[in-house]
């Protein structure tokens, strides 16, 4: 069976902060792939490197101090061999950004320029990448606002960001991202800054859009509940490494890695007994670069053993998820 060609294939990605002997690895051999039309979620605590991964793909890392020190980011543009974004030149990247890969940022309150009307900001991308005239771009902007569910888009397109509520702004940000119908949409915690009710609306919108445009989504979040609603596949990251990956149903129902188990055990559910105490993961995320060998999670893992000082093998479970842990049983 020939494997379906991945839209985005990240292979052994390494990112470091700083130079020479004082360089600290922030991403340490991250690999995953996003299939066409599917949603891949990257989950993890703050500082695990999930946002850094997104910025690396977009080549928006603050350089210096951060830089890509190894690995490949293969992006399939549909024509010819896949392009390695890790080594693409600035010009190629600029043309790709916004057109083939678009990004939705976390904070809708600050992701829009306060001095331009919303319609102009959506149209700007179209003028840049599609060569539309300003007038055509504005007309298309109104269509996009309607598409993302902004009521009376003709008037709203002429309004400024401060006249939009948080949820409406995030819709406008999504409209900008969708303007050129990108093959890949990177969403960096797009709902974290929103109220729960608005959050659900925005998530539903993103799912609708995905079906309509058949685009892939790389969804970055720390919220396991959101993962269940959005993703087809999950990658769990800890301290710059992938500790577990697999289909969303397998990872959520039968997490193999102790860290994934910990993340899922710490979600409150409605049907759990009222006197049950949520299980937090003990300790704090250690600073990057402090643990560079063996299982990075061993300092907080309830099952830590002597063998965890050695790099754990990557093992695939019967459920279909693969985890890097000495405890996981091989599926054979």
């Amino acid at each position: 069976m020939a494997a379906e060609r991945a839209l985005l294939d990240v292979q052994d990605l390494r990112v470091s902060f700083g130079e020479g002997p004082r360089a600290r690895p922030a991403l340490d051999g991250v690999s995953f792939s996003v299939r066409p039309g599917k949603t891949l979620a990257i989950v993890g605590e703050s500082g695990c490197g999930k946002s850094l991964t997104a910025l690396s793909i977009m080549r928006l890392l603050p350089t210096p101090p951060a830089r890509i020190t190894g690995g490949r980011i293969l992006f399939d543009r549909g024509d010819g061999p896949a392009l390695d974004l890790a080594s693409a030149d600035r010009r190629t990247m600029r043309r790709l950004r916004g057109k083939d890969i678009a990004m939705i940022f976390q904070e809708p309150m600050t992701a829009l320029d306060p001095v331009y009307p919303i319609g102009d900001q959506i149209g700007e991308v179209l003028v840049e990448h599609e060569g539309l005239s300003r007038k055509d771009a504005l007309a298309r902007a109104v269509e996009l606002l309607r598409l993302v569910g902004v009521p009376s888009p003709e008037e709203r397109a002429r309004q400024y960001p401060h006249e939009f509520s948080g949820g409406m702004r995030q819709r406008a940000v999504i409209a900008i991202a969708l303007a050129c119908e990108p093959a890949l949409l990177i969403a960096d915690e797009p709902t974290t800054a929103l109220d729960v009710t608005v959050q659900a609306q925005v998530l539903r919108l993103m799912r609708d859009i995905q079906q309509r445009f058949a685009s892939s989504i790389l969804f970055i979040t720390h919220d396991m509940g959101v993962v269940g609603q959005m993703a087809d596949e999950v990658v769990v990251m800890y301290l710059g490494q992938v500790v577990e990956e697999g289909p969303v149903s397998a990872v959520l129902s039968r997490p193999a890695h102790p860290y994934s188990q910990g993340l899922i055990a710490s979600i409150p559910t409605l049907d759990m007994p009222r006197d049950r105490v949520l299980q937090p993961i003990s300790g704090m995320v250690p600073p990057i670069g402090s643990i560079t060998t063996g299982c990075r999670f061993r300092t907080r893992c309830p099952h830590a053993m002597e063998i965890c000082r050695r790099d754990p093998p990557k093992v695939t479970t019967p459920a279909g998820n693969s985890a890097s842990c000495w405890l996981v049983e091989e599926s054979t």
Partner: peptide, 17 residues
């Protein structure tokens, strides 16, 4: 450092723009 400037870069606008 404001997000909208980063968003402009992410949207593929040129530095001059």
């Amino acid at each position: 450092e404001r997000e909208f400037i980063q968003a402009c870069v992410a949207a593929g606008l040129t530095t001059t723009d």
